[in-house]
Design a protein around this nucleic acid. Structure first.
Lengths: 131, 131
DNA sequence: ATTGGTGCAAATGCTTTGCATAAAG
DNA sequence: CTTTATGCAAAGCATTTGCACCAAT
């Protein structure tokens, strides 16, 4: 994979953010350093980087995809009100595969626990940040 | 929730299918019984029914949502090649919440294990059914 | 009678693509 | 010099919405 300026800065900025940004949120951040970058470039690079396993693509709640520059093993909670995603610390992940009794002939490549809940902000406000 | 003909038949047909259909796949099936039904009605009802907990909405892989008329506790595998979703039998689900060490102030509403893999069909063909 | 649901078509919103140009190796 | 990536604008696709009409309670 060719190292372009755009690719480098996208990765760098994503790694700085702890917010699991959407593509357009990251685009706004990257734009401060590369004002002429296209949103298409951001999408294309996030795709390439996640294929390469250098970042994680998070798909929750049927909304916008979110991206995580931290690829160390951890789980996520999705706030059903505002769509925010946060980290969840859990015990060892590998126990999960031991739970499988019948996978119907699938070759299982990966597994993960996904949580849904209400984030601290929405608990206080009893409504969404973004709705 | 009012019981309309459309709503009844959508639920009935979804419960018959073991394939975790997308909204448009279900639309094609329902259309055989209600030729004048609109895809919007299918979407609206799938939404209402899943809010009511009568069906499950499955969101995997950033593709089309899939729906499951079987709400008994079970997990799913998503085939990364063709997008098919199948059931996975696992041991008791409640152990998962016990795995949480730190949920960052979120009130956790639900949790689930998600698996990704290659379905038997794609293993044989070494390519996707739909690509 | 009143509320909620439907069908249709148009709109939305996120994401992807075609194409000509530019940069990387 | 040969890929591979970029920027731009347009297209794509799943889903949602506005609105007038219809049906269920």
């Amino acid at each position: 994979m060719r190292i372009t300026n755009q690719r480098e800065i996208i990765l760098e900025e994503l790694r700085k953010l702890k917010t699991h940004p959407t593509a357009d949120e990251l685009y706004e951040v990257v734009r401060k350093r590369l004002p002429r970058i296209s949103i298409a470039t951001v999408y294309r690079n996030l795709e390439r980087l996640s294929e390469a396993g250098m970042i994680h693509k998070l798909e929750y709640g049927g909304r916008q995809k979110r991206f995580d520059g931290d690829i160390s093993p951890h789980s996520h909670v999705f706030c059903v009100k505002c769509g925010r995603i946060s980290d969840v610390k859990t015990r060892d992940d590998s126990e999960i595969l031991d739970m499988v009794l019948d996978s119907r002939g699938y070759k299982i490549l990966k597994c993960g626990v996904q949580f849904e809940g209400i984030c601290p902000f929405c608990q206080q406000n009893n409504r969404s940040q973004k709705d």
